[in-house]
Amino acid sequence: MFATIKRLYHQFGSPRYFYDMTGKMLPWLIAGAVLLIIPGIVWGLAFAPPDYLQGNSYRIMYIHVPAASLAMGAYVMMAVAGVVVLVWRMKMAEMVARSIAPIGASFAFLCLITGAIWGKPTWGTWWVWDARLTSMLILLFLYIGVMALNMAIENAQSAARATAVLSIVGAVNIPIIKYSVEWWNTLHQPASISMTSSSMATEMLIPLLLCIFGFYFLFAVLLIMATRCEILQREQRSNWVRQLVENN
């Protein structure tokens, strides 16, 4: 078991192996994303029953909730990649971490936009300083900080290490920020309608789960594609990349 993990780690640590292997995995991941998201969305938008309180407007949840979960998950992943960068000095982890930030930021942004659209029929305004939306806004700011730092440092390796430190600090702070914002929210806005009802009918829940899993596949596809671009750019002087370019 441990030996297998170690072998996989070393194999995926080589940019060339990563590039070849993910090239083979990509079609399957794309298929997985399509097969999960399309039924999930169609089911959720067309067939799931309307909510007794919110009517049909809750259906944006099928995009909002997966986006929220990914935005958070991607940050944690970026921090884990950061640990690998700092502790094991793995070049591949540098490229993965660099690729995650814009994707995670996009999901955070998507979550905020869908939240605003959802907020209009529910609260009557585009923006409410709801605890979840506010936390997501700050998460987006954290992503922006990471991306700004990454862009500002020219040397790719220093940039990767500096952003690794920042994303780890950020990840440690996320629970503290979330807790603080919730506390602040109960202080200033007691009793607002929670957007997701705590108990959900099975007919609503299954498409939601399909969408969440589908979004994870979508995230994997995006991340792998971005990382492959990064590999080609970073390794452009190496022989195998040159051969790859010549053969195509």
């Binding site: 700050i138 700011f141 954290l142 922006i144 900080g145 700004a148 730092l149 500002a152 440092i153 220093s158 500096a162 430190v165 920042l166 600090v169 950020g170 702070n173 503290i176 920020i177 807790y179 603080s180 914002v181």
Partner: peptide, 23 residues
């Protein structure tokens, strides 16, 4: 500390640090 090697540190430090100030 993360931006001390860069000539244009000022605004970058703000963007990095401000979200962490929230709590």
């Amino acid at each position: 500390a993360l931006t001390v090697g860069l000539r244009k540190g000022g605004v970058l430090v703000a963007i990095i640090a401000l979200p962490l100030y929230v709590p």
